[in-house]
Simulated assay, not measured.
Amino acid sequence: MKKYYTAESVTEGHPDKLCDIIADSVLDECLAYDPASRVACEVLATRGRITVAGEITSRHIPRVPEIVERVLKDIGYSTGGRMLDVLLHRQSPDIAAGVNTPLEERNGQSLGTQLGAGDQGVMVGYACDETPEKMPLAVMMAHRITHGLTMARKTGQIPELLPDGKAQVTVEYENGRPERLDTVVLSAQHRDDVRPAELEQALREKVLIPALRALPPDEDTRILINPSGRFVLGGPDADTGLTGRKLMVDSYGPFAPHGGGAFSGKDATKVDRSGAYMARYIARNIVAASLASRCQVTLAYAIGVTQPVMVEVDTFGTGTVCADDCLAMATRYVFELTPAGIIHALKLTRPIFAKTACCGHFGRADFPWEQEDRIKALQDAVL
């Protein structure tokens, strides 16, 4: 049975990603000086103006103008001619109370250093055995294209490129496995004086061929490069950017549902971020332990409560040892699912988040939620 799945990725210069990077850079600076910082930072970027807003409770006051200027410069945008609005205030005392004094403690259960969830919500993690990264192949290839596009620009391999860009990859699946590359779309911002045919040839040779090695194009693969014909004006000058508007790019594309909570700009007491990282950690270890070839883990939390109100595992019929409800029970046994436990297990008080903001939060070995270090514990729990 044939199916087609399409995954998307965008470069760091895309206006939405620019906002995500600024928000996570604000978070990182707060954590670098105060690991207990509570941050919920949102960014909007449009022509000539950037707005940074949200709630921050920290012993450090982030130097937002310096952060914004540094991010713009690092990405490759001009730092002049832009107005900056900074609209930050402290976290709501009601939310802070629910996090600091969770429901269980208010009901007389002594929890010591436990934290309540910073919000309600549903978080989804996914893993599969299609790639060494335990990610869907289409997703990984889309991210490799945009990463290659950025590297070709920054290293001078293709000097005509500008920071904005996006990629889309459609893969044909046969009986649940990737069989052939159907369509590739690449849109790359460029200088006004570029020769389109020369740019297209450079993009094919220096970006697409390396990025698509895992499933090379065949004679029927459609490759569309700058299908609009011209892409000179880009970034926030062309399109308003906003944090949290690339949820499926950040996660698993069409291969798994999304709980709805954005990641960037939030500290780890916000379980829509930390819970999604934990769900991915669990799913990857289940697949790495050969307990399933595909796995989706869903967690749900209530604000001010320590334990998740739901833990669900779905292996889509690929489980090898026990049923999905058995894996869900093993998950509760092997993994610490309270907010404090997640923060401790994944070391989420470190300033590591600006690196997550572009090319996906999952499938990159340098993040702690990608470690396959619970394989034996899971196997022991179910065997």
Rank of each mutant, 00 (worst) to 15 (best):
N285F: 09
V232D: 06
A345H: 11
S290H: 08
A268W: 04
P227M: 12
A268S: 13
R230G: 00
T240M: 15
S293P: 00
G235F: 11
T221F: 04
G229W: 03
P216A: 08
H344N: 15
P236Q: 10
G275M: 06
E312C: 11
K206V: 02
A268V: 04
S293A: 05
F231R: 04
R294Q: 09
T221M: 00
V232I: 15
T331C: 13
P216Q: 05
A323M: 13
L327G: 05
V305P: 00
Q296T: 14
D218E: 13
V313E: 06
V309M: 12
A330I: 05
C326E: 14
G341N: 09
Y252D: 08
Y277S: 00
F231G: 06
C322N: 08
F335N: 04
G241P: 11
M248I: 15
I286Y: 00
I343T: 10
Y333A: 14
A211S: 15
K246S: 07
T318C: 06
M329G: 09
R213V: 08
P257R: 10
G235V: 10
P339V: 09
Q296G: 02
G244K: 13
S251V: 03
S274F: 04
A214P: 01
D220R: 12
E205Q: 10
K266M: 11
G244V: 08
F231L: 07
D272S: 05
E336F: 03
F316M: 13
G235L: 14
R273Q: 02
L247C: 07
F231I: 05
D324C: 05
